[in-house]
Simulated assay, not measured.
Amino acid sequence: MDVEQGRRRLTADDWAPAALDAIGEGGLNALAVEPIAARLGTTKGSFYWHFANRDALVVAALELWERRFTEATITALAAEPDPAARLRMLFTQVSGSAGQNAAGVNLLAAAAHELVAPVVRRVVQRRIDFTIGIFEEIGFPLAVAVRRAMLGYAAYVGHYELATRLPGVLPLDDGGQLADYVDSVLELLLHDAPTRWPPSGGRLPAAH
C-alpha cells in the first residue's frame, strides 16, 4: 500500500464518493474542496493531484451517481426474465430505498446547472426508457407503455422527494406495508394488461 505522511494515498475513487455524500447532505453548493479534504483526512494538495478544479470533481460525482443508482440497478434487474416480476422488483427496490439517495433529490433540484443538466436528463430518460420496455414486454402498446412508465416515474420522484425532505412521513417502514403498497401500485398499472395479472389471483410474481 502506498503511504504518504503516514496515511493511505488517496485516489480519485476516494474523492468521488465523498463528493456525492456532500451533495446528498447539502446540495450541489455543499461540494467544496476543503471540507471534503478534511473529511478524507487529507489536504487540498491531494485534490489537485487528481482533479484540475472543482468542476472536475462535480463531473466525477455525477458519473458515480449515474453508475451506482441507475446503471447498476438496471443491470441487476435485467437478469430477471419475467417482466412483471422485474417491474415488481423495480418498484420494491425504489420504494424501499426512498430517502437513502438524497444526492439524487438534490441533483434534480440543481438540474438547471450546466454540468448537472445533461447528466440528470440522460439518467431520467434512461430510467423511463427502461420502464417503458418492461411495460412493452408485458404486452402494452407503445403509447400505453409510455403513459404507464411516465406515471410510475412521476410517483417515484414524488416518493423520493417526500422521503428525503420529510423523513418518516411515509408509513412504509414495515416490510408488509411496503409489499402491500407495491402490489396496490402495480394493480393500478397492470389491471388491464393483455394477460391477467397476477396470473393466480395472488401477489404479482416476485423475483425467481
Rank of each mutant, 00 (worst) to 15 (best):
Gly24Phe: 03
Leu40Tyr: 09
Ile23Asn: 04
Ala30Gly: 09
Glu34His: 14
Ala30Pro: 10
Pro17Val: 06
Asp21Val: 11
Glu34Phe: 14
Ala22Trp: 08
Leu28Lys: 08
Ala18Glu: 04
Trp49Asn: 06
Ala19Leu: 05
Glu25Tyr: 07
Ala19Tyr: 00
Gly45Asn: 11
Asp55Arg: 10
Ala19Pro: 01
Tyr48Ile: 04
Leu10Thr: 05
Gly41Gln: 13
Trp15Pro: 00
Thr11Met: 06
Leu20Ala: 13
Ala16Val: 07
Ile23Ala: 07
Leu10Ile: 11
Gly45Glu: 04
Ala30Tyr: 03
Asp55Val: 01
Leu40Asn: 06
Lys44Tyr: 00
Arg39Val: 05
Lys44Gly: 05
Thr42Glu: 03
Tyr48Asn: 01
Leu40Cys: 12
Gly27Phe: 07
Pro17Tyr: 05
Val33Glu: 00
Asp14Trp: 07
Gly41Phe: 10
Gly45Val: 06
Thr11Lys: 05
Trp15Met: 00
Phe47Leu: 01
Ala16Tyr: 01
Asp55Gln: 14
Phe51Gly: 06
Pro35Cys: 14
Leu10Phe: 00
Gly26Asn: 14
Tyr48Cys: 02
Gly26Arg: 10
Asp21Glu: 15
Gly41Asp: 12
Asp14Glu: 11
Ala16Pro: 08
Ala30Cys: 09
His50Gln: 03
Ala16Gly: 07
Leu40Gly: 08
Ala16Thr: 09
Val33Cys: 01
Trp49Val: 08
Asp55Tyr: 04
Glu34Ala: 15
Asn53Arg: 14
Asp14Cys: 10
Phe51Pro: 06
Glu25Thr: 09
Pro35Gln: 14
Ile36Val: 15
Thr42Arg: 05
Pro35Ile: 09
Glu25Met: 09
Ala22Val: 11
